[in-house]
């Protein structure tokens, strides 16, 4: 089985889906000859030509609006937004159309498209190359929001997203594009949307997280085990909406303690919804308060980003809080 990083796995997912289904097209800025600024679409133009790997003018609103029209007509567009920080120009198209056309048309029309984009911090990208805006998409009924944390999941989730009948926002944590390598099957497989992955088993605390924060959570779990012998379970949500509530509940039945970790700013971050869901429906499972570790409620800073983002110390502090309550 070949060893791949996330970029290579995503590239293979696109290539396989484009071979399998000629309705799949890729469009965006620099996705052709340049292969995308992170090389996710590298080489696709050579195999599939300019009709299916489309370099567009520099306009997120145009890319998403045109992709919606393509999906309405019957294609399966995968639209790349070069950095998710630039997506806001396309917000009206995403919120008013991509998410709502099925509902607006009484189910007569649908928009089976994928918006894929590098997201999140950790590469000293500063304010406009580091954001984690998943809450906006989760809050918008009609969208599915996904974020992989491994090359294997990236390939399987992207393939599932392309085959989804519903529009998917597919966020790629760029800090782990090339740092994590693993065996990725060279064959067709999908990872189902809506299902979490148990990354580490434990009995004392459930840490719900996703994207690059999975690795921070694992480090904090190791530290807590070494220092106190606490046994920490780590759950990678993978699909942020609709999230795998059953996996969280099943884990909490064992651990009775919940910590949620995400890069997105704390206030109304996805942790607010997950925490509220558990508090509203399963308060009896909890021994004490839920803790959240999140990006601070500021714009993403260029300096001290490792302090801004959840890190081993801040996650450990949260573990201590729920264990010592």
């Amino acid at each position: 089985m070949p060893v791949m990083n996330m970029v290579q796995a995503l590239n293979q997912a696109l290539r396989e889906e484009m071979r399998r289904d000629k309705r799949v097209v890729v469009l965006g800025e620099d996705v052709g000859r340049r292969g995308g600024v992170f090389l996710v679409t590298e080489g696709l133009i050579d195999e599939f030509g300019e009709d299916r790997v489309i370099d567009t003018p520099l306009s997120e609103m145009g890319i998403i609006g045109v992709a919606i029209g393509m999906a309405l007509y019957g294609l399966r567009p995968v639209a790349e937004i070069q950095f998710i920080d630039f997506v806001y120009e396309a917000f009206d198209q995403i919120v008013s159309n991509m998410a709502k056309i099925r509902y607006r048309s009484g189910g007569m029309y649908s928009v089976p498209m994928v918006l894929r984009s590098p997201c999140c911090g950790g590469i000293r990208g500063g304010m406009h190359h580091s954001q984690s805006p998943e809450s906006y998409f989760i809050h918008t009924a009609g969208l599915i929001t996904v974020m992989p944390s491994t090359p294997y999941d990236a390939k399987g989730l992207l393939k599932a997203s392309i085959r989804s009948e519903d529009p998917v926002v597919f966020l790629e944590p760029k800090s782990i594009y090339r740092t994590i390598k693993e065996d990725v099957p060279d064959r067709d497989y999908t990872v189902p949307l809506g299902r979490a992955r148990l990354v580490r088993e434990g009995d004392d605390v459930t840490v719900v997280t996703w994207g690059a924060m999975v690795y921070q959570a694992l480090e904090a779990a190791k530290l807590a085990e070494e220092k106190h012998g606490w046994s920490i379970e780590v759950l990678d949500l993978r699909t942020l909406f609709p999230f795998d509530k059953d996996a969280i509940v099943e884990s909490l039945e064992k651990t009775e303690r919940l910590v949620i970790v995400h890069e997105a700013p704390k206030t109304l971050g996805p942790g607010a919804e997950i925490g509220a869901y558990i508090a509203e429906n399963h308060i009896e499972l909890l021994r004490g308060p839920i803790a959240r570790v999140a990006g601070f409620d500021t714009p993403f800073p260029l300096v001290h980003e490792k302090l801004y983002m959840p890190n081993i110390a801040r996650i450990y502090m949260a573990l201590r809080k729920v264990m010592e309550y």
Binding site: V66, G69, L72, Q93, Y109
Partner: peptide
Amino acid sequence: VPAPVPVANQLPHAVGAALAAKI
């Protein structure tokens, strides 16, 4: 395709559908 109320939203859709038909 039913119109969106926010004006002009449908223009890029018409372009996308036209391009899809062409492809």
